[in-house]
Design a protein around this nucleic acid. Structure first.
Length: 391
DNA sequence: AGTGCCGGGTC
DNA sequence: GACCCGGCACT
């Protein structure tokens, strides 16, 4: 688990200028990238904090800061936490806007108050349309739809947008990015591509990535095509990225298949609730023995209503291992999964290992040597447990 | 590679 | 049961 070396706090509301300043020297590209990413994330969080809401009291505001800081620390390192899943039930009535938000992997962070301001902080954000069709299984559009701008895009803007996430991925994982905009399931192979797609197609911005404020992040998610048969085999979720290969299998109900995965990690789970259902299904593979938090109430830490989290029966599920979900980066995830697998598949063969550990004491063989084998105890001679120098 | 010894084979 | 040894775990 890693914590950001510098737990930055929210003070810097719009400090996402890595793009603005176009100061990306080659040397800084790498660094810049991560910084940008961080900044983007931060923006998302900070926006909900720094933009004081009328109904908030001072204490509440302070509280927000504190919690935001906490959240940021986890966010900065684990992208998947970025956008915890949102219960579809909320999208229909718009409750999610009222601070409804999905808890991060930290159970304790349930008080992450993604209150209204966070979603609305960005004036230009046309919250993706929500409606009764929230529950509609996401339709899978031209999957193969060769991203018109997919790869090419990467070249031009990957420097800025390429998320580090994929880098951490195992090679067995093919990462794709899917647009979560309602009724749009476009899948592109690069983050940059999908971002551009969203920016131009849905956000109606024709400007270059330069003028992006990162909002696109909210509207796409990443999906993984897993080729790791082993891991996959164990995950009770058969569908391998159904979103890409086939329609979500019925057996993957949103709740149970939900997983904490980086994919949901994209903020758009929040802003594009209508697609959450899909997201869940899409990432079914990520759900390894998912544990669904049964909670059915809003999570209100401190009993303060200000943090009203309206998520009911949160879709939040995380793999059984108590491994802190925060570090849900793929790697961690994989590790977790491996653990789970190990547990599940551990053969009843432990008996073999009952073999008593070799004794430390000297044995006949060592004492007398091979030359004096006749001096060995019979057991040693017979290659049995030494009886003379019993441990 | 060396050591300890389990499991199993042969007489 | 005495004896032997293949093979594995452990160092």
């Amino acid at each position: 688990m890693y914590h950001p070396s510098a737990p930055e706090v929210v003070e810097d509301p719009r400090g996402l200028d890595c793009r603005r300043t176009g100061r990306t020297s080659d040397m800084e590209k790498e660094h810049g990238r991560s910084v940008c990413l961080l900044e983007q994330k931060r923006k998302v969080v900070s926006s909900s904090i720094d933009v004081p809401h009328a109904r908030k009291s001072e204490e509440e505001a302070d509280m927000d800061k504190v919690t935001a800081a906490m959240v940021l620390t986890s966010l900065s390192t684990s992208p998947l936490v970025r956008s915890p899943p949102v219960r579809t039930s909320e999208c229909s009535n718009g409750s999610w806007k009222e601070g409804g938000f999905t808890p991060s992997s930290h159970s304790s962070s349930g008080y992450w108050s993604w209150s209204a301001p966070s979603d609305q902080s960005n004036p230009s954000t046309p919250s993706p349309p929500l409606s009764a069709d929230c529950f509609k299984p996401f339709r899978m559009p031209s999957v193969g739809g060769p991203a018109d701008d997919g790869i090419d895009e990467a070249d031009s803007s990957s420097l800025l947008f390429d998320e580090p996430i994929p880098r951490k991925r195992k090679n067995s994982m093919k990462v794709m990015f899917k647009c979560l905009w309602k009724n749009c399931g476009k899948v592109l192979s690069t983050a940059a591509g999908i971002q551009r797609h969203i920016r131009t197609t849905h956000l109606g911005r024709n400007c270059d990535s330069e003028c992006s404020d990162g909002e696109e992040d909210f509207y796409y998610t990443e999906i993984k095509l897993n080729t790791d048969s082993v891991a996959e085999g164990l995950s009770s979720l058969s569908p391998v990225s159904p979103s890409v290969l086939a329609p979500p299998p019925p057996l993957a109900p949103p709740e149970s298949s939900r997983t904490k995965s980086e994919s949901n990690g994209t903020p758009l789970s929040r802003s594009a609730p209508s697609t959450l259902y899909l997201v869940h299904a899409d990432h079914a593979y990520q759900a390894t023995t998912p544990v669904t938090i049964p909670s059915s109430n809003s999570f209100t830490p401190n009993g303060s209503n200000s943090f009203s989290i309206s998520w009911q029966s949160p879709p939040v599920t995380f793999t059984g291992t108590s491994a802190s979900p925060t570090h849900s980066r793929n790697q961690g995830f994989v590790e977790q999964r491996a653990q789970t697998i190990a547990v599940l598949s551990s053969p009843p063969r432990a008996t073999t290992s009952l073999r008593k550990s070799r004794g430390e004491g000297k044995k006949c063989r060592k004492v007398y040597g091979m030359d004096n084998r006749d001096m060995w105890c019979t057991a040693c001679r017979w290659k049995k447990a030494c009886q003379r120098f019993v441990d």
